[in-house]
Amino acid sequence: MIAVIDYDTGNVKNVMKALTYVGLESILTDDADEILSADGVILPGVGSFGPAMDELNKRDLVPVLQEVVQRKIPLLGICLGMQLLFETGYEFGQHQGLGFLPGKIVEIPAKEGLKVPEMGWNQNEVLQPASRFAGVDGKFTYFVHSFYADCPQEIVVAGVQYSTFIPSVVSQGSVVGMQFHPEKSTDAGLDLLKAYKGMVEEYVDTRN
């Protein structure tokens, strides 16, 4: 069972439908016991960095997520959910993030002819061919965002060219982030969710 973190963010159901499609059952929850007993945890997110962190704090979810990382339960952040995994966010002021990954969330630089938000399909280039998520190389995935992760290259599995190089898949240990929406990226996205499923299955094996 996958715990999808419930903190009042938009359109979580589509993530759950995609999980069902790749064979992962999921529940939407903000209950600590349910989250910590799950085989995998997904932090979704649509909206803005500050209010999202406020909502996680209001529901006392930050220590629960810290425990998730400590126990090495595969944690996948999607879109804003990925951004929250980093140390600091600079969307409408400066906000402290969860700090599971090194780096900060900054605005996509303006460039003539390129619109912000970046909205649409962009092509991934893989920097870590040995990663279980390397199958995304050359594939297009669906992005909707105005901010991106400025982070050390060691954790960048893949990225896309826009007004700057934008990390699209980041990973460190049991923590994974995807800047695009895998649940809206047809086969390429579903394949990434299947790769995450592989992580979940390995975790379940080690736990048992």
């Binding site: 589509n14 439908k17 995609a18 069902t20 499609y21 669906y142 809206k184 047809t186 996205g189």
Partner: peptide, 8 residues
Amino acid sequence: VSSQVFMP
């Protein structure tokens, strides 16, 4: 549709 088709 959104249970079977995964695009915007």
